[in-house]
């Protein structure tokens, strides 16, 4: 029971971290919270369902295509909706919230209220350490999630784009003075934030099928992760995701299943009360 809960917590935690990284990236670069983040996750789930099921593509190809499509949509959204609101936090909050509702009702019209699920990539189950049987699809999700996170951090560390991101999220004015084109950077970051949500979506949708409104709890969890880890801190975000995943699954196993999702809000309240800058946040901004 304990080992199973921990494994479940790790799988979910990795996916939480992956989803939250996209939010963290956008907050760090643009100081914008994308309230439609969860809907981009769902959108990617639907895309991979469409590509794999309806068009019969290979699941992995379908996944990559879905992420690319959501990335492009993210860029368009940034260009048309978010860009004109720079410096006005109020309207970026309102616009992304409306966008999330618009996307939800579009999903409902197109796909209906029923769960949709792309095909599994792997079958069967594995006996983990001789303790319990665990679905291969979930293990694959764990590995894929960890791989995408590793890839993202390598990108931050090693590439020119990653350096721009780190410089800008530290000090926007300084970055602008040093000739970083923050407009283009904003656009790419927003697109990449959506792509990270999409990555989480395609990885997890075979395990948890997507429904039109399933993005709301996903986004909320990502927001709690970001606050827990410290706004704009990438490592904090990963740690936050793992903590939440574990707390939720241990809480569900040993305290109450119905209140599984309330635990993370208790954590949120504690963080806001005790350490508002989060686990890894800088105390001054």
């Amino acid at each position: 029971m304990l080992a199973l809960s921990i494994t479940n917590g790790l799988v979910i935690g990795i996916i939480y971290a992956l989803t939250a990284l996209g939010v963290s990236l956008v907050v760090g670069i643009m100081n914008v919270i994308n309230f439609a983040h969860g809907e981009f996750y769902i959108l990617a789930g639907y895309f991979s369902y469409l590509f794999a099921h309806t068009m019969g593509l290979d699941p992995v190809v379908a996944m990559v295509l879905s992420i690319a499509a959501v990335f492009l949509i993210g860029i368009v959204v940034e260009y048309t909706l978010i860009r004109p609101t720079y410096g006005d936090d109020l309207y970026s909050l309102i616009l992304t919230f409306i966008l999330s509702i618009v996307m939800q009702s579009t999903f409902l019209l197109v796909f209906g209220p029923f769960p949709n699920k792309p095909p599994n990539w792997v079958k069967g189950a594995t006996n983990v350490f001789g303790l319990f049987l665990y679905g291969n699809q979930r293990l694959a999700a764990l590995i894929a999630g960890a791989a995408v996170i590793a890839l993202f951090f390598a990108m931050l560390k090693l590439t020119w784009f990653g350096r721009m991101i780190r410089a800008t999220s530290q000090d926007r004015e300084m970055a602008e003075l040093n000739g970083i084109n923050t407009r283009r950077l904003n656009m790419l970051s927003f697109g990449m934030g959506c792509a990270l949500a999409a990555a989480a979506g395609v990885i997890l949708s075979p395990v948890f099928p997507v429904t039109p409104s399933a993005g709301v709890p996903v986004a909320l969890t990502a927001f709690v992760c970001v606050v827990l880890g410290g706004m704009g801190s990438m490592w904090g975000c990963v740690a936050g995701g793992l903590v939440l995943g574990l707390v939720e699954n241990l809480g569900a196993a040993f305290v109450s299943t119905g209140y599984k999702h309330v635990f993370m809000y208790l954590i949120l309240i504690l963080v806001l009360l005790i350490r508002p800058s989060g686990l890894f946040g800088r105390s001054e901004t």
Binding site: V27, I33, F35, D89, V216, V224, V227, M231, Y265, P276
Partner: peptide, 12 residues
């Protein structure tokens, strides 16, 4: 931003 996030959580 924190108010927006927390009120959304509150409603959940």
């Amino acid at each position: 931003i924190y108010l927006s996030l927390t009120t959304l959580g509150f409603s959940e």
